[in-house]
């Protein structure tokens, strides 16, 4: 099989397209997956796709600020994970299930 024609320095647009695809996968996972942990992982995937965009733009603009933003995003994502996993734990304790569809007691 001939090697794929990947340039030595791929253009920034490729990274942006990759980031868009990852973001789309995250959104799709959020909407279609039924396990809460997987849904949560999809959200993390979305945030990391955004990080990739920040880095790509930062490289293109020759600015350092985009790199710094990714650190902020990572810290926030970590804080969110700490709280989120704790909430998922209480759900499991109260309902003994992690299926999104079975968590539907709140309605009219």
């Amino acid at each position: 099989m001939p090697p794929l024609p990947i340039p030595e320095h791929p253009p920034v647009a490729w990274y942006l397209i990759l980031s868009a695809i990852l973001f789309g996968l995250g959104v799709a996972g959020f909407l279609f997956r039924r396990n809460i942990i997987t849904v949560f992982m999809s959200i993390e995937l979305m945030l990391n796709a955004v990080n990739l965009s920040f880095i790509a733009f930062s490289y293109q603009l020759k600015q350092v600020s985009g790199h710094i933003f990714t650190f902020f995003v990572m810290v926030v994502a970590a804080a969110e994970a700490a709280v989120g996993l704790a909430i998922i734990l209480t759900i499991y304790k109260n309902k003994s299930t992690l299926e999104v569809d079975e968590i539907n007691s709140l309605n009219n």
Partner: peptide
């Protein structure tokens, strides 16, 4: 009910933040 509310708030809130 509280944990269900927190879960929905958390998941949809983080989704929106994305």
């Amino acid at each position: 009910r509280n944990s269900e509310s927190a879960l929905k708030y958390f998941l949809l809130g983080s989704f929106a933040t994305g």
